[in-house]
Design a protein around this nucleic acid. Structure first.
Lengths: 206, 206
DNA sequence: CTGCGGATCCACCGAACGGTGGAGGCGTAA
DNA sequence: TTACGCCTCCACCGTTCGGTGGATCCGCAG
């Protein structure tokens, strides 16, 4: 039996979901909430297996609630159910720890399969969401170069060879190479020249 | 007899120079000026052979005055005499058409030899200035990358290897390398990474 | 027509770089 | 304590790059 908590600021939506799961044998809606903070409370109190979470809500939004829930109740899987699939919605939600991301135009059947999958710890994503992820999820997020990495990139931009950068930072050449590899991974490039270009585009360099 | 005009905004300096040349047989200070515009006027009016020009002056500065003088009175040689030898001072002055560049810590003897050299159309540079020039004067000036060179640099910034850039532009890899060498020369760098950095700093790249 | 700048191409070479797959230390958050 | 992220370092290897010194062709301006 999967214990489900529904978090959405629209009563209509909550009601619709309650109905949808009403006569499903292995899923029971044990609680509801109208915003993120309340949702966290209910999920913990009621030992939810899966939390159906809307993103755009007054007060604490879905992303913040998801992140908080991942910390305070890791066993509760958060399944995003929302209207929007823009990059600016999807990425933060995934990063916050959502296990799945569905759109509200999903069929009831898809929704139930997704809930069961989430309960098992599997990910279900709406097709359009998958697109966004393919290219993006790999890069640990723009602008997340560490301070050290930024230093290295700046030196490279200023014309330092690996050896010179190593001398400047009082570390070994091998470390510079490692930092650069990480920089390449994070920026999605393959060489120092385009890393520098990306650095400027993302305003990491001066 | 070398007809000399002194352009400097400090009366003290002008006086010192007048004294310095007072009992020199082949040099006569025929006029003085306190800023660039006045200097141009005097130099033309008095048919100066050599103009001793300060760089930092109120009103029209030495660089602008030098450039203007080169056009309106090409026979007057402009010899820069200033306190500063930073790159940002030296290069514009040379490009503006100055025939020599001395620092104010020069000995009177050096100064006189420089004036005579200037009058003959020869260049005399302070040693530290020479350093700046060696590597820099060749570059025809920032932002003067040809269209082709900008294309190459943009490709490099976007992660292209030389081979890939060659394919993209339907030319040989050797040409890409040549273009890059020219780019390095013009931007004053030694590798593609810092060339890209300079490209962004000079707003040549997007 | 001659010079000059721009664009194209060539060969050769050593040095630097990028890719891979590690490993250990260290502080912090869980 | 256990993870995890970050920083540090290592070896090996093939590829690419940068440096040098040429060369030809074209168009434009003097």
């Amino acid at each position: 039996m999967i214990r489900l908590v529904v978090v959405d600021d629209h009563p209509i939506v909550r009601g619709g979901l309650r109905d949808t799961f009403a006569d499903i044998e292995d899923i029971v809606v044990v609680g509801e909430a109208g915003d993120g903070a309340e949702g966290i409370e209910r999920a913990k109190l009621l030992a939810a297996d899966v939390v159906l979470m809307d993103l755009r809500m007054p007060g604490m939004d879905g992303v913040a609630a998801t992140a908080a829930l991942r910390k305070s109740a890791p066993s509760a899987r958060v399944l995003i159910l929302t209207t929007f699939d823009s990059e600016s919605d999807v990425l933060p939600a995934i990063e916050a720890g959502a296990i799945g991301y569905l759109l509200k135009d999903a069929l009831p059947d898809e929704l139930m399969r997704a809930v069961r999958a989430a309960a098992r710890g599997e990910s279900v994503l709406a097709p359009s969401v998958t697109q966004h992820l393919m290219g993006q999820v790999r890069r640990p997020r723009a602008g997340t170069l560490t301070d050290r990495e930024k230093e290295v990139l700046q030196l490279v931009a200023n014309g330092s060879s690996n050896r010179e950068a190593a001398t400047a930072l009082f570390i070994g050449e091998a470390s510079i190479k490692t930092h650069l590899q990480h920089i390449y991974d994070k920026l999605g490039v393959r060489d120092r020249a385009s890393a520098v270009a990306e650095g400027y585009r993302r305003r990491l360099l001066t």
